[in-house]
Design a binder for these strands. Structure first.
Length: 439
RNA sequence: GUGGGAUUAGCUCAGUUGGUUAGAGUGCCAGAUUGUGGCUCUGGAAGUCGUGGGUUCGAUUCCCAUAUCCCACCCCA
């Protein structure tokens, strides 16, 4: 049997790894500015954690978890998302007694057994933030501003922010009555999925994509218009905060969430470049979650950002991302001088220089070819003559007529100075060296 | 779980109305008079034509199944 990567997983190869490192580093840096601290949680947890924390009735838990029994007979599951594990850690480590609000961020892989399509994988990466202990709308706006700053710093534009409020358990109850009353007369015209939803989860009917259902729900009452006065005040506060921060948003009555402990603020960053999965980042408030998991009543809010989708969006918007750094210098070796070349190469590397040399006993011509293809900026030849004289010619592979005769002993300092400098500065450093070295 | 398209060299793809040793481009390796890349030329390695069955004298080609990839439904980041 041929071994291949499991369906829905993929290798991240050296050519793209710098893009990943970049989005990771910028995310960590921005989070740090906002006071969010990194947390690392287990890749798998007791299955019961996700049943409670994600919701036993959700598709994620019912159909999509990688669940297995360990050798002790305990049911374990690979995490399908990050929030449940973070909340578990929050409780287990007594973070309720830490100074409030507790702000955490994470960078994880998550696993869902789903059919694969654009922007959706079985193993995928998420960045996320969770903030515990702040109930007012200020932290909602702060979290959204963190994301805006992050996207802006990466160079992303044209990604729209959609917000809404899904109220609290109290006002949701009465809204469901209103919604059901509205839908009842049209029930037989809804699609079969929606007829099931009418019993299971009526709110989902609102974002059904069937034309018939869309026609019916166009004038359906929206959750946002049926929230209680406390929830209204919270949502208004969020809008005011976003306005004063100068952040644009779209009030989107069609955003829905299924679970009881998701409350009030919901938001999504949506793009048109990630297939039908337009959501790059989804978040919201979960004031009931910590209590539902057995902790003290603690308000919380968070988001999860799909890294693969983010990178797709960056590519679609043609944002330039860092490329792997090529070697600064390639040492071509002739005349059985491999040992001496290797020790000079090591000296250069100790000095901080990205240096490569031939290890395959190739001809000089082949080494030059290889140096050119490696993207090395400079090349120098090391043979019996050079070692006897203690000097070699340093030559640019990128620019004509940029050369200098260099003492072997000066190479580490000189190349360290040249590394990652603009061409003009490199030329000047080489000129200065040539005029002062007196060779 | 459901539906559509795809699968031939490391990569991007031709091709065979079913017929000897299956092709190109690119990449890789080597060479074009003795120690200097990129351009050009020459040569080489590399494919059980996704896998398993079936039809046939003969299958990479036709049929069935299956796997994987891409896209969509469901759902979600």
């Amino acid at each position: 049997m041929k071994i291949a990567a499991p369906k829905g997983t993929r290798d991240i190869l050296p050519g793209e790894i710098t893009a990943w490192q970049h989005v990771e580093q910028v995310f960590a840096e921005i989070c740090g500015r906002f006071g969010y601290q990194e947390i690392r949680i287990p890749t798998f947890e007791q299955t019961g954690l996700f049943q409670r924390g994600v919701g036993n009735t959700t598709d994620i838990v019912q159909k999509e978890m990688y669940t297995f029994e360990d050798k002790g007979g305990r049911s374990m599951s690979l995490r399908p998302e990050g929030t449940a594990g973070v909340v578990r850690s929050f409780l287990e480590n007594g973070m309720a007694s830490w100074p409030s609000p507790v702000r955490l961020f994470y960078n994880i892989t998550a696993f869902r057994y789903e059919n694969v399509q654009k922007g959706r994988y079985r193993e995928f990466h998420q960045f996320g933030c969770e903030a515990f202990g702040a109930s007012g709308p200020a932290i909602d706006a702060e979290l959204i501003s963190l994301l805006q700053l992050y996207f802006q710093t990466l160079g992303l534009s044209r990604t729209s922010l959609h917000i809404s409020s899904i109220g609290c358990p109290v006002c949701r109850e009465s809204y469901l009555e209103v919604l059901k009353k509205f839908l009842q007369p049209h029930l037989d015209r809804l699609c079969t999925d929606c007829q099931e939803r009418f019993v299971k989860n009526p709110m989902r009917i609102i974002d059904c994509k069937e034309a018939v259902c869309r026609g019916i729900t166009r004038d359906a009452p929206a959750q946002l218009d049926h929230i209680c006065s406390d929830c209204q005040r919270h949502f208004q506060g969020l809008c005011d905060n976003l306005d004063s921060l100068g952040l644009d948003y779209i009030i989107d009555r069609k955003i829905v969430r299924g679970l009881d402990y998701y409350t009030r603020t919901v938001f999504e960053f949506i793009s048109e470049n990630v297939g039908t999965q337009g959501t790059i980042c989804g978040g919201g408030r979960y004031d009931g979650l910590v209590a539902a998991m057995g902790g003290p009543p603690t308000p919380g809010i968070g988001f999860a950002l799909g890294v693969e989708r983010l990178l797709m969006e960056l590519a679609a918007q043609r944002v330039q991302l860092p490329q792997p750094a090529p070697p600064t210098v390639y040492l071509a070796v002739t005349g059985s001088m491999e040992q001496q070349a290797a020790s000079l190469c090591f000296a250069l590397r100790r000095a901080g220089v990205r240096a490569q040399t031939d290890l395959l006993d190739r001809s000089l011509k082949a080494q030059m070819k290889h140096a050119g293809k490696s993207g090395a900026q400079f090349v120098l030849v090391l043979g019996p003559d050079e070692l006897a004289a203690g000097t070699t010619q340093l030559r640019s592979l990128l620019r004509e007529n940029v050369t200098a005769v260099v003492r072997l002993a000066d190479l580490p300092d000189l190349l360290c100075g040249l590394q990652d400098r603009p061409a003009a500065e490199q030329d000047k450093i080489i000129d200065d060296y040539a005029s002062t070295s007196a060779i």
